[in-house]
Amino acid sequence: METRLQNDPGYRRLRAARWNWRTTSYWLAPDHLLIVDAVGVMERYRRFDLRDLEMLILHPTSSRRIAVWILAPTLAILAGVTAFLGYLALTSTTEYAGIWALISAFPTFLLAGALAWVVLPGPFCETQLRTGVQTLSLSGLIRLPIAERFANELGAAVAGLDFAGPSPRPESSATPGFPTAEIAAESSLPNPP
């Protein structure tokens, strides 16, 4: 096992996303990516050495298109009904038209808000992080522009690393001057079985 991660690095937040009662955030240290899953009062950490990352795959999904196809006609119908009731309330003496217009305006605004939430931040996507031994789905990165920004920042951080750097175990058997049996004999430690 080789862990080159720094002991207490300064972290820079790349992205945080709240998903139901769970928050996933991505933090960048000089040498590793820290994924923090916060559930209630517990924080769970997963670390990925930047030197081990192989690729980040962004895969746009059709969720936004489907959501727009469902939400937009419903909103149009509701807005039409609201406008018609409002018109009736203003121009005629129809009883309760104003109240019904207000009642139908409430879901109309809710739906408009939902549509704005679906459309404005950009297309939905799935993001996968791949190392030599695993593929991890990054649950917090579900919008393409945000995921692309994340990919660019991660790419810049990885590009700044020295990949030719130190060998995994610089203090391996080639280390000169390591204690020999004489020193071992002087040591207070018991001899191996």
Partner: peptide
């Protein structure tokens, strides 16, 4: 399916 892949040196 459209894909975008960021490849790292590893």
């Amino acid at each position: 399916t459209p894909l975008r892949i960021t490849v790292f040196p590893a």
